[in-house]
């Protein structure tokens, strides 16, 4: 191992899976630096001279980006804002500061993008840009890779959907990740439904009729035999079957967890053809890693729902005894060899 090559990890302070991966890095005596979103960047310098250099100081540790041979973007971001002063401010100052941050944040985006792009040519597991992948392009590309997807409409015209289709077969989702509830002039606008509302939505779609709907995603409910969660990492597949159908409470979304009789979660092996298609999709999305939701239907078909670039994998790793954290550490170490 070269003395001055380093592994960079960008994450959140409370992110447990990161801790696990770091334990493996420590175990293998690999040199790394972890930057959390909450960490204050004491100094940053981007120098254009004969060669380009990005240097920053965080928690008294100096980091030269040219030495980073391997990086893992887990979640969060390098926070270039001067967060330290926050606590001492009064209300007015806070408000001013808030507005200033909003604009200044946009200014900083160029710098952040540049910093992150600089990691591209090296070994890299995920990137902050992965967050920008929309559900629409996921669906479109998944289809082009030969994966089946549920019938989906993005629309703000619910009356039309009610007229044209059998409404009770739809699930209402957010466009990408977030469900909105807006209050404008005493008039409520909604986009997507919370997962806790889903059971109602399946049965009582009509309740959205006449409401002010922002563009939402309407997806046909697919009757499933089991749900599949797959963690993809640089060509490797770690899949888990979730038997959510046994339990009435979790029929729509397994997040309605039953603590006494949790859904059975066991290792699963996707057929090679499906894995090949997923690999093609990940390549097109430029994702080195991600967590995929797939449905295995009553007819034995595989329906792709979505891929979350920074999805959790701890549950999957523990339930199926998959050495995911170890594998991530090994891949990172591979990059600095």
């Amino acid at each position: 191992m070269e003395q001055d090559s380093e592994i960079l990890i960008i994450s959140d302070e409370s992110e447990k899976s990161t801790d696990q991966v770091l334990k493996y890095l420590l175990y293998y005596d690999a040199k790394f630096i972890r930057i959390n979103g909450s960490d204050i960047i004491e100094k940053i310098e981007i120098i254009f001279d004969e060669k380009e250099e990005i240097q920053l100081v965080c928690k008294d540790v100096e980091l030269n980006f040219n030495k980073v041979k391997s990086s893992w973007y887990r979640r969060g971001k390098i926070n270039l804002l001067p967060v330290g002063h926050y606590q001492k401010m009064n209300g007015d100052e806070m408000q001013f500061y808030g507005q200033y941050l909003e604009h200044y944040g946009k200014e900083l985006k160029g710098i952040l993008t540049f910093i992150h792009n600089s990691l591209k040519s090296r070994k890299q597991i995920n990137s902050i840009h992965d967050n920008d992948i929309s559900k629409l392009s996921q669906l479109s590309l998944a289809k082009s890779c030969g994966l089946k997807i549920p019938f989906t409409i993005f629309s703000n015209n619910i009356e039309n959907i009610l007229k044209q289709y059998e409404p009770n077969i739809f699930i209402v989702k957010a466009i990408n990740f977030h469900v909105f509830r807006l209050n404008v002039n005493n008039c409520k606008w909604i986009c997507g439904a919370n997962s806790s509302e889903l059971i109602d939505n399946e049965i009582d779609f009509q309740k959205y009729s006449g409401k002010n709907i922002l563009i939402s995603c309407f997806q046909k409910y697919v009757a499933k035999k089991i749900e599949i969660r797959t963690f993809f990492l640089l060509g490797k597949f770690y899949s888990m079957a979730i038997f959510s159908q046994q339990n009435e409470k979790t029929k729509i979304d397994f997040r309605h967890y039953d603590f006494e009789r949790p859904n059975r979660t066991v290792p699963f092996k996707l057929p090679v053809v499906i894995e090949k298609r997923i690999e093609r999709l990940m390549r097109k999305l430029k994702l080195s890693s991600g967590s995929l939701d797939i449905i295995y239907t009553l007819d034995g078909e595989y329906i792709f729902l979505e891929v979350n670039p920074i999805g959790q994998f701890d549950w999957l790793a523990r339930s199926c005894n998959y050495p995911i954290e170890k594998q991530i550490a090994k891949e990172l170490i591979d990059g600095i060899k």
Partner: peptide, 14 residues
């Protein structure tokens, strides 16, 4: 073939 056995490997990073 879709349902492999649970791996009985054990490992701990210390």
């Amino acid at each position: 073939e879709l349902f492999p056995k649970l791996s009985l490997e054990w490992d701990y990073p210390s």
